[in-house]
Amino acid sequence: MATKIITVKQQMRAAQSFPFFSSLAVVVPVLIPFWIAASIFTYCAMANHPCTRVCDYLVPAGYRFYGLLGAWVVLLNFSSNMAGWVGGGLNLALIIWAISILVIVPLGVRDILRARKEPWQEYTVETTE
């Protein structure tokens, strides 16, 4: 069996990728449909990462992002009623966007910085290649 070394930088980038792209997608809302599709692939690819610390960063970031999208589904189902409360659809969209940024971005930045300071070590994995 061959062995593969997962470097410190690869592990750090893996831990930082989901919070980074989730934050980027929320700040630039046009990217959200693309990130929804890509995030499913990213989450599945990293969920079985050999280094469990990568998953320690992935799971909370996934819960935040997918929880936010679930809340959006509920809010958008009642958007016609709620738009009257806040002065129109544009105001409602801006409020939802601002709350989304407050939920995702600060915690995503915290995770990115925390992953940078994490004491990663090279990881050796046996492969079947």
Rank of each mutant, 00 (worst) to 15 (best):
Ala83Asp: 10
Ala61Asp: 05
Ala115Thr: 12
Gln11Asn: 07
Val105Ala: 04
Gly62His: 08
Val28His: 10
Met82Ile: 14
Gln11Tyr: 05
Leu76Gly: 14
Ala71Glu: 05
Leu24Ala: 12
Tyr66Thr: 08
Trp35Ile: 12
Asn91His: 07
Gly62Phe: 04
Phe65Cys: 08
Asn81Met: 08
Ala14Thr: 01
Gln16Arg: 03
Trp97Leu: 13
Pro106Arg: 10
Gly62Leu: 07
Val103Met: 10
Arg116Ala: 15
Ala37Leu: 15
Gly62Val: 04
Ile36Phe: 12
Ser22Val: 05
Ser100Thr: 12
Thr42Ala: 10
Leu113Phe: 12
Phe65Gln: 08
Asn77Tyr: 02
Ala83Arg: 11
Ala25Met: 02
Pro19Trp: 03
Phe20Thr: 15
Leu102Ala: 15
Gly84Gln: 13
Gln16Gly: 06
Leu68His: 14
Leu76Arg: 13
Leu31Gln: 02
Ile101Val: 15
Val8Glu: 10
Gln10His: 05
Trp72Lys: 07
Ile104Gln: 09
Tyr66Arg: 06
Ala38Tyr: 13
Lys117Gln: 15
Asp111Val: 02
Arg114His: 14
Gly84Phe: 13
Phe41Trp: 15
Leu24Pro: 00
Val54Arg: 06
Gly108Ile: 07
Pro33His: 08
Arg116Asp: 14
Leu102His: 05
Ser80Pro: 00
Ile95Glu: 02
Val74Met: 14
Met82Glu: 03
Leu68Cys: 04
Trp35Asp: 11
Tyr43Arg: 01
Ser17Cys: 09
Asn91Val: 04
Leu76Val: 09
Gln11Ser: 13
Gly89Asp: 04
Ala71Ser: 15
Ile104Phe: 03
Gly88Leu: 01
Gly88Met: 04
Leu68Thr: 06
Pro19Ala: 03
Ala37Arg: 12
Ala47Cys: 11
Ser22Cys: 14
Ala61Leu: 03
Gln11Pro: 02
Lys4Arg: 15
Asn77Glu: 00
Phe21His: 06
Ile101Ser: 10
Leu92Asp: 09
Val8Lys: 09
Ala47Gly: 04
Met46Arg: 10
Pro19Arg: 05
Phe18His: 07
Gly108Tyr: 08
Asn81Ala: 09
Gly84Tyr: 12
Asp56Glu: 13
Arg64Gln: 03
Leu76Phe: 15
Ala115Tyr: 13
Val105Asp: 01
Ser39Tyr: 04
Leu24Cys: 02
Ala45Phe: 13
Arg53Ala: 15
Gly108Cys: 10
Gln10Trp: 01
Phe18Ser: 03
Lys117Gly: 08
Pro29Lys: 01
Pro60Leu: 05
Val109Gln: 02
Thr42Ser: 09
Phe65Asn: 05
Ala38Met: 15
Ser80Asp: 14
Leu68Trp: 13
Leu90His: 10
His49Ala: 00
Asp111Trp: 05
Val27Leu: 13
Ala14Tyr: 02
Ser39Ile: 09
Arg64Glu: 01
Ser17Arg: 12
Ile101Gln: 11
Ser80Arg: 11
Ala71Val: 13
Val59Asn: 07
Gly89Val: 00
Leu31Pro: 11
Ser17Pro: 00
Val105Pro: 04
Leu107Pro: 00
Ala98Lys: 08
His49Asn: 08
Val26Phe: 07
Arg110Cys: 14
Ala47Met: 12
Ala14Glu: 02
Gln16Ala: 08
Gln16Trp: 02
Ile5Arg: 15
Ser80Asn: 11
Gly67Phe: 03
Ile32Asp: 09
Leu92Pro: 08
Ala98Gly: 13
Ala25Gln: 06
Arg110Glu: 10
Phe41His: 14
Cys55His: 03
Leu24Thr: 02
Gln16Asp: 05
Met46Leu: 15
Ala38Arg: 06
